[in-house]
Amino acid sequence: MRRKGLSYAKYGYIFCIPFVLAFLIFSLYPIIYTAVIGFTDLKGLGRTDFKILENPFQNFITIIKNASFQQSLKNTIIIWVVNFIPQILIALLLTAWFTNHRNKIKGQGAFKVLFYMPNIITAATIAILFYSLFGYPKGPVNDLFMMLGITDEPIYFLIQKSTARGIVSFIQFWMWYGYTMIVLISGVLGMNPELFEASEIDGATSAQTFFFITLPNLRTILLYTLITSLIGGLNMFDIPRLFLLGGPDNATLTTSVFIYNQAFSGSYMYNRAAAASMIMFVIIAILSGMIFYIMRDKDAAQLKKFQKKQQKALRAAEKAGRRADG
């Protein structure tokens, strides 16, 4: 029986070959290539030959000291934070409402479908749609605001730094809160129903149940959502690139747009773009490491820990025994 099991093992390797090959060619090699380019003088359209710089870290130093890069990193973080806080709060609120057994909201299915809808639409389209919606002096949003009496004069949203950034954050929020809500709801539905029954029997209010039962049990999923959203946010490209092309005055320039501009729009500074990519890669790798740590097989990890502890104890006992002998 055991021999038979072994003879099939080779198919495990064979069936993984396409994945491994595709990964080596299209992911690993480009990563290494990008890293190497970061240390070279490769710039200019159509060039592929390069040599390592005298000071290999020159590009990295240039990028870190570059005011636009610093600005883009700052923008990316501001835009992400301003989008994520309301996103997670609204998603949590809706999760609490939609999973409340005592008074159910009618038409939940339809609401879910509508809340998630923007997420599936091409981001490039949404960026240009919002550019049109926020037109000045005539545009749907300005018309609406004046109709509702929110403002008397049309607002030039797209030329002010804060409103421009705010709109990008809003688009991100609008595209992603439905997704986050569905993930959180599925997290709540995956919890042991006895927990909720017990709290109901104990006479807890809906709010108490939410804060003391639901929220603590959602911790892992919340952390996961936070980090994946952060990684996604650090790669934000389509919306800031097409909405205002990084402007006004670099206010919506994100790191991905910065990298794109360095390499592909006009200047062809592949080496600097590669250095900036690697800086982002390290940041994202650290964040991914955190997700990996959260998602690892907890039981297996615990078992390993336990075995290690036992071995240690065993060794300690042996040592003690030897000492006693001596």
């Binding site: 090699y29 380019i37 159509g46 592949y270 990519s277 690697m278 994202i284 991914s288």
Partner: peptide
């Protein structure tokens, strides 16, 4: 699990140069 989160964006320069070549 470890490579799940690597976004295509950060490797794009090497990918482009490779494909160009």
């Amino acid at each position: 699990l470890a490579v799940m989160m690597i976004p295509a964006q950060v490797t794009s320069i090497g990918f482009y140069q490779f494909m160009y070549r």
